[in-house]
Design a protein around this nucleic acid. Sequence first.
DNA 1: TAGGCCATCTGGTCCT
DNA 2: AGGACCAGATGGCCTA
Length: 143
Amino acid sequence: MAQIDGWVDIDVATAKILSRWEWRREERTSGDASSPESSFESMCSSPEMRSSSDGSPTYTPSGRKHARISEQQKPKVKMSMKRRMKASEREKLRMRSLAEALHQLRDYLPPVYSRRGQPLTKIQTLKYTIQYIKELSSILDQQ
DNA sequence: TAGGCCATCTGGTCCT
DNA sequence: AGGACCAGATGGCCTA
C-alpha cells in the first residue's frame, strides 16, 4: 500500500467514502442499469484497450467490436449537415456529462491526493481513484 | 517555447 | 434512420 504524505485520517475517510458508496449503489440499483460489478481491474490494467492502427479489429471495454471494413466495402454515406450538427451537440453534452462525473469523482478523493493546490487532472483522478479503492480494499481485508 | 490538459468537431461503427 | 459510443485531429489555454 503506497503511503501518502499526511494522510492519517484514513478511518474517517474510509467511513465517509463507504457510506457514500452505499448511497450511490442504492441509487444505481433503483435507477439505471450500469453494471457496478464490471471488472474495474481488468479495465484499468490494460494500458491500450483498443489500440490498432492496422486493419485488425479493435475492441471497446464493453466488448464492442470495431471491425475494419475495407475501402471497397465501405458505403461512405455522408451525414447531412443537420444530422452532423445534432450529433456534435449530443457529443458535446455527452463529454460534458463525462467531465462532470469526473469532477464529482474528484470530490470523493481525500485532499491529500491533490498536490500543489491544483485540481487533479482527469487522468490523475482516475489513477488516484484506483489507488484509493485499492487502499480501502486492503483496509477492509485486514478487518 | 514545448508540452500537458482540455473542449470540441468529426467520421466510423454498433445498436435499436 | 438516428442515437450512442469511440478514437483521432485540432486549437486554445496554461505552466514549467
